[in-house]
Computed example of a mutant assay.
Amino acid sequence: MVRHSPRAPHAPAPVFTPMATAASCVGFVLIGVLQALYGPAIPALREDFGLSPSTAGLALSAHFVGGVAGVLLFDRLHGRIGNRRILAASYLLMAAGAAGFALAPNWPAALAAALLAGLGFGGIDYGLNQLFAVGFGRRSAAMLNILNAHFGIGAILGPALIGAVGAEHYPTVFLAFALVNLPLLLCLKGVRDKAPQPTGVTVPPAGPTPRTRSLVSVLAVFVALYVLHVGIEAGVGGWEPTHLETVGYGAGVAATATSVYWLMMTIGRFLVAPLALRFPAPAIIAVSCAGMTACLLLAAVPALAPYAYAGVGLFIAPVFPTGLPWLHRAAPSAGRAGALVIAASMAGGVAAGPSLGKVIEWSGIRAVPLLLAAVSAVCLAATLWLIRATRTAGAAPGH
């Protein structure tokens, strides 16, 4: 006797078709490229506009300010105008901003264009992370790691492109970037227009329960985790070369080791994707925070430092993408939670440089890995607190 499995009466359409999923990964390559283009273009920007180093660096700051604004703006709009229009507007803004930066007649116009490109960047970063976090069910953490690994590919390609053509030809690279965005608009028809609800979530009963903390406290600790871990990410990327040179390595070795750090972050996200199908997100993040804390402590030993920094890249890789599905399960009623932590992570990247720089002024360059290890230990403590705070009967996450 053949038994037929009952079919769901209203099986929802998938959030992404295979083509749209692939196009989303290409979109993340592009936002990685864009973020990484500004730094290598600084010498040419200084020459073209007569800028000091700090003034030229404002291009990346404008990009990040636009990114934070884009996350918050598009989060407010996505429930009203649909996912396809949000993503289409983001790609168009990013393309228009990149083209404007390439053709800007003066520095204020270039900064305005970088801000415009950042708006689109923030929309893509928020929109795709949000949809991947809720659109693949138990595979969401794995798919988010794959998506964000493509950002790393773009971040590696960006400086390579500038290096290949020469910094003086940065307008050509930015214009080419703007054009490459446009074909992705054709793939948006494969994106489900209405945002789905998080899957695999047990709605908590009304009123407080003995094993849950207040929603505000949970969100606050998630925000702290994201701000601090992005601060570590940016801090290692910014200060690793200086620290390695201070402890005796040559400039070439220091630069190569820093490139390996970013490469290991990209590889780590690909490697953790299959693990995210077997292990819960909280466990992965706890191991990641413990691992990066240990590696940062080892980086204080000069002979181990280049290898330890590579380990930091490997362990820090899963935190951002793996945490988003956990956040959606832990706070299903907080519709703005994803936007809040993504915007906070961008703010953490902006604040990391000057904040860490001030501390280093009195502690010295050799203390960089120990300072970052202390921050990483706080990330681990926050993760352990969240594991206890979000553990509820019948709602344990699994993959």
Results as ranks from 00 to 15, higher is better:
113 A>S: 09
109 A>G: 05
47 E>S: 04
164 A>T: 12
165 V>Q: 08
348 G>A: 08
70 G>F: 05
344 A>K: 07
349 G>W: 00
102 A>V: 00
392 T>F: 07
279 F>D: 03
37 L>R: 00
229 H>T: 14
113 A>V: 01
365 I>S: 06
122 G>T: 04
23 A>L: 08
285 I>M: 12
284 I>G: 02
398 G>W: 02
204 P>W: 10
364 G>E: 01
178 A>S: 12
146 I>V: 14
255 A>F: 02
201 V>N: 01
387 I>H: 01
293 T>D: 05
168 E>K: 09
148 N>V: 14
262 W>D: 13
344 A>C: 13
91 Y>E: 05
8 A>Y: 02
275 L>P: 08
261 Y>A: 13
396 A>S: 14
189 K>A: 15
4 H>T: 14
83 N>S: 14
144 L>R: 09
330 A>Y: 05
312 V>K: 08
52 S>R: 01
4 H>V: 15
327 L>G: 02
54 S>K: 01
234 A>S: 12
29 V>I: 14
103 L>W: 03
32 G>C: 07
196 P>C: 11
68 V>A: 12
384 L>F: 02
244 L>S: 04
229 H>W: 07
15 V>W: 00
11 A>R: 05
60 L>G: 13
359 V>G: 07
91 Y>H: 15
246 T>D: 15
294 A>R: 03
285 I>S: 06
13 A>S: 13
277 L>K: 08
26 V>L: 08
343 A>D: 10
109 A>R: 02
186 L>C: 06
340 L>N: 03
314 L>D: 05
244 L>F: 04
287 V>I: 11
305 A>Y: 04
205 P>M: 11
110 A>R: 00
356 L>T: 04
63 H>P: 03
30 L>C: 12
371 L>A: 05
258 T>R: 10
286 A>G: 11
124 I>W: 03
193 D>C: 10
279 F>Q: 09
196 P>E: 05
247 V>M: 04
118 G>Q: 04
156 I>T: 13
164 A>E: 09
344 A>G: 13
316 I>Q: 05
86 I>N: 03
129 N>G: 10
2 V>G: 12
205 P>K: 09
83 N>T: 11
